[in-house]
Nucleic acid binder design. Sequence first.
DNA 1: ACTTCTGTGCAATAAAATTGCATGGCGGCG
DNA 2: CGCCGCCATGCAATTTTATTGCACAGAAGT
Lengths: 151, 151
Amino acid sequence: MDKIDSKLLRLLQQDASRTNPELAAEVGLSPSSCLRRIRRLHEAGVIDRIVAILNPAKAGRTMKAIITVELERHGEQYIRRFLDMATREPAVIQAYSVSGETDAILMLRLKDMDELDALTERLFREETNVARYYTAFVIRTGKETTEIPVG
Amino acid sequence: MDKIDSKLLRLLQQDASRTNPELAAEVGLSPSSCLRRIRRLHEAGVIDRIVAILNPAKAGRTMKAIITVELERHGEQYIRRFLDMATREPAVIQAYSVSGETDAILMLRLKDMDELDALTERLFREETNVARYYTAFVIRTGKETTEIPVG
DNA sequence: ACTTCTGTGCAATAAAATTGCATGGCGGCG
DNA sequence: CGCCGCCATGCAATTTTATTGCACAGAAGT
């Protein structure tokens, strides 16, 4: 993981559609060497995967909501059960168990209110062990990146 | 946006490193047609970008934290100012202004506690107009996808 | 029924990815 | 201090993929 690797990671996190010769030129290597480094980063698991990021509005998912959840019983197995249930929902794009007052935080990507209604109905009925939950709607997105600082 | 487009979007959201001939076979099209569809999705902005997703642990950013923020003065311009400031922090990977009790929610990707300390020092000093903030550390990640449900 | 538009497959061409091989730098060891 | 081995690099050859022109077929509209 030298300087060149870091630069490659930064570039690929910003735009992985670039061709190898382009990347090679950017970091000052020959295409073959550059390719081998990228492959090595893949194999080492530093690069987990390459994905397409959609424009939510144009993909028909305009609403975003963040729900903080407090459970009734806080045992590890209960939290796990709730997280598993939340994870199965396609609209849930992030699901975490967290420290502090709240037990879990969910990030949702929704089409409309009806979808939220149906989802909360499924996740927060009595037998799901949820004591309280707070729904916050995203008004403005200041930043939303998949980029992790490297180096 | 027919069935084939949706399938392409699903596939590309899961793995955009696939070659065009592979994708074409998956959706039952010739490579050239498939490529043209993908290009069209790009041009239409449905596909925003192609990025590499790193393994946070292997990239040296193991900690994740979520901070909910309440501002002292809630005016639009204050919220905007705070969001802008948060956005400039590389460790902040998501920054939203939200409805409800809290004004903003930040998602952080951190190397260690020192980094968090330094960051809170910068973001939550007196003149930043923050009344209260709650830091929740992510204990377990149940789900974390960039995939938006399509179709 | 005719025209038009749009998407498709095929084939040719250009570009990129992949691999073998030889070279050179760098660190460890004698 | 010099020798040896290791690893990354660049070059070149080969395979694979991306790209584009072209003609055709189906759907929609006139």
